[in-house]
């Protein structure tokens, strides 16, 4: 449903241009004697401009051709033929094409800017929401401690633990935001070097609290050589995968991470138990700013997994999310581009 309306919406402007062309032909026919050839020529530019502002070069070319053919066939002597005697008319055809091209290019730029603005706006929205959630924990908890002077030491420690956790979340989010602007600017170069996945997982684990590390994780990494990739980005990838698993995992269930070595690729699998997730949503999970609609209370944002996708794509790999065994499995496949030579 949505798809077909989208398609109609996308191409309706061509229909509009065709209608305008028909109306123009009619007007030119009826008032041809008053309008003179120059003005008839000029009004034939209208459909070209109407199409061009939609920024679709193919459509522009199509309508320009059509407009020129109509103009030539119906109004340029010899009438009802495609012979062009006068070189001047060739010029006016050239001008048609030039107008169409200029407007299309400008329109394209404008559309790109609008899209970027939209992205920026939703980014701001997410920042304000997602930074505010841990911040309110910190703020509220500190106020609670400050206003209760005779609180038990143990409960103070618990509250401080909450503050610590919230601030760690904020730190991760800020790192993600910086990465996302870097990754979406498009001109990022991978800093390729030899990476050790065991080492990367170790560094990624430092970002999480002791409780998460010790009790909730099960990690298995194949014995393998070094992997040729961007160390910083791959670390961020693992951090985000862990972060996502912790966020959506059912309470008190284990999260499993597997890194499997094959001849031509490395496979990273991360699994967490979770309430049933429908398949349509799983497809969208790597889109920027996507978040399960019914889990609004969970802090964080779709930004983490979108970054995962960018990182994986930059390494020439694939990432997908599957619903499996009452939980979610994210599977990353990274091609092995180079093998390390040692001594």
């Amino acid at each position: 449903m949505k798809n077909s309306t989208l398609k109609y919406g996308t191409y309706s402007f061509i229909l509009k241009a065709l209608t305008i062309l028909a109306v123009i032909t009619l007007i030119s026919h009826v008032f041809g004697a008053y309008l003179d050839i120059i003005n008839i020529g000029l009004i034939h530019i209208i459909p070209v401009v109407v199409v061009a502002i939609h920024g679709n070069m193919k459509a522009t070319i199509f309508i320009t051709l059509l407009s020129v053919v109509f103009f030539n066939f119906l109004y340029i002597p010899p009438l009802y033929s495609f012979n062009v005697h006068d070189e001047l008319y060739l010029w006016s055809f050239g001008i048609f094409a030039a107008v169409g091209w200029i407007v299309t290019v400008q329109a394209k730029n404008l559309m790109k800017q609008t899209k970027q603005n939209e992205l920026r706006e939703s980014l701001l929205h997410i920042i304000s929401h997602d930074l505010r959630t841990p911040l309110s924990t910190i703020h509220g908890t500190i106020n609670l401690i400050l206003s209760n002077s005779d609180m038990e030491k143990n409960s103070i420690k618990n509250l401080l633990e909450d503050i610590n956790y919230a601030s760690l979340r904020m730190k991760r989010l800020i790192a993600n935001l910086l990465d996302s602007t870097r990754l979406s600017s498009g001109d990022i170069n991978l800093k390729l070097e030899w990476c050790d996945f065991e080492d990367i997982v170790g560094v990624a684990l430092e970002e999480f609290s002791q409780i998460q590390k010790d009790e909730l994780l099960e990690i298995k990494i194949d014995e393998m050589g070094l992997f040729w990739g961007d160390n910083t980005l791959l670390t961020q990838l693992i951090i985000n995968l862990f972060d996502n698993a912790f966020k959506y995992s059912k309470e008190n269930t284990k999260i499993k991470l597997l890194i499997i070595h094959d001849k031509t690729f490395v496979k990273i699998k991360i699994f967490n138990k979770s309430d049933y997730i429908n398949k349509v949503k799983l497809k969208n999970i790597f889109d920027k700013f996507y978040r399960f609609e019914d889990t609004n209370d969970i802090s964080g944002s779709g930004i983490g997994l979108a970054i995962c996708k960018s990182i994986v794509t930059l390494h020439g790999g694939t990432i997908k999310a599957l619903s499996e065994d009452e939980g979610m499995l994210i599977e990353v496949r990274l091609p092995i581009l180079k093998k390390a030579k040692l001594l």
Partner: peptide
């Protein structure tokens, strides 16, 4: 020669 270092640390 980072690959030496990473391999030997591992």
């Amino acid at each position: 020669e980072m690959q030496y270092l990473r391999t030997y640390v591992n």
